[in-house]
Amino acid sequence: MIRVQREDFDVGAELEKLSAGNPKVGGVCSFVGLVRDVAGDATVGAMTLEHYPGMTEKQLAKIEAEARERWPLEATLIIHRYGRLEPCDRIVLVAAASAHRQAAIEACSFLIDWLKTQAPFWKREETDGGTRWVEARESDDAAAARWRTDPDRAAE
């Protein structure tokens, strides 16, 4: 399930819903992203998350569908917020439920790594020195790249 929303979410309630009434689920793995108060050597007072309505939902649905193709999952969830957020606020929740832990853990990693490089969200930070757009990080590309299917091996 995909949700793009301004409001906060209740992590416990969301995770409980993911496996409720489904005795095939043996494990749920989740990741929660939060706003930090530092970026480099600057203090961040708040950030505003902008997104591309329509494309965001499309990309998240693709990311979710790809995870469900790659791992035997009972349920997946992506909730991503937009708007103005302050340090300690929740930004994102991704979760995957499966019969066994390995699929749930791997799929959860995949979902957040893929989301960070594919979903059209942009962060603008408010710091002591003014506001600035956050720049994409190469380490995020590298994290996503490890999930890329190796074309040589895929052809076997």
Binding site: L49, Y52, I112, T117, P120, W122
Partner: peptide, 10 residues
């Protein structure tokens, strides 16, 4: 058509 910088969500 949309133009935008590399994404920074998550």
């Amino acid at each position: 058509i949309a133009f935008f910088p590399p994404v920074t969500g998550g």
